[in-house]
């Protein structure tokens, strides 16, 4: 028993030491990260507008990049159309397969990012569902996280999770246009993340309490 405990403590100390050492090394690696990126061209846009009973869909084929905007036919959209939203609002977006700038790479340690940059910045008249071809980056069945890069506040904000890649495409809903990114795993540096850490702690505490209670109960017997 004593031998096992000694072994356990030694192993824990090794793990903690390695963790501290590597986190220091990793921060310097992150600073020097130089990722090659490919920004897709915005020229030769091909717009297709389709109206269904409940939705207006704009499909855009921009060289290799295919994406679509879907707006619900609600009052907000009707008002926007009256105000010539189609003319005023630029529906183009660019995707960048990896971390492009030092700014983002200094804020996010994930290395599987797909950055989405909308030409239009700011509010949109109504919620829009974006369908984006991510075939080159993610596999079918992968579930992605969506984050918003808030440059004013200098923070990453969690928007959505569980966005499943189906037929090489992913769908997500936005309420304003700016810079977003998709990733396959949670971004620890972001704000408003789902409460995953809390759940680990809760489960851990519950298990330990139950195990202790069971032991005490046995001893009492």
């Amino acid at each position: 028993m004593k031998k096992n405990l000694n072994l356990l403590i030694t192993f824990l100390l090794i793990i903690i030491s390695i963790g501290v050492l590597v986190s220091k090394v990793s921060s310097s690696i992150e600073e020097n990260k130089d990722v090659k990126t490919k920004v897709l061209s915005k020229t030769n846009d091909n717009f297709t507008k389709t109206e269904t009973e409940n939705e207006v869909i704009y499909e855009i084929i921009d060289d290799d990049l295919t994406y679509s905007w879907t707006f619900d036919k609600n009052d907000d959209l009707k008002n926007a159309l009256k105000d010539n939203m189609e003319i005023d609002m630029d529906l183009k977006l660019d995707i960048v397969p990896n971390i492009q700038d030092d700014y983002l790479s200094s804020m996010v340690s994930n290395d599987d990012l797909l950055v989405i940059k909308f030409s239009h910045h700011g509010e949109i008249p109504t919620k829009a569902k974006i369908t984006l071809d991510v075939n080159d980056k993610y596999k079918n069945g992968e579930r992605l996280y969506l984050y918003y890069l808030n440059e004013e506040e200098e923070q990453i904000e969690y928007i959505d999770k569980g966005l499943e890649v189906k037929n090489g495409k992913v769908e997500f809903t936005i309420e304003h246009c700016s810079n977003y990114f998709l990733t396959g795993s949670i971004v620890q540096e972001a704000v408003n993340n789902p409460k995953n850490i809390n759940l680990i702690i809760i489960v851990m505490v519950v298990v330990i309490i139950v195990l202790i209670a069971s032991t005490l109960f046995q001893n009492k017997k």
């Binding site: 903690i16 590597v22 340690s109």
Partner: peptide, 13 residues
């Protein structure tokens, strides 16, 4: 704890 620590540092090395 071990997988948690691994998740913290492995992607960066």
């Amino acid at each position: 704890l071990v997988p948690y620590v691994l998740n913290m540092f492995l992607p960066s090395i």
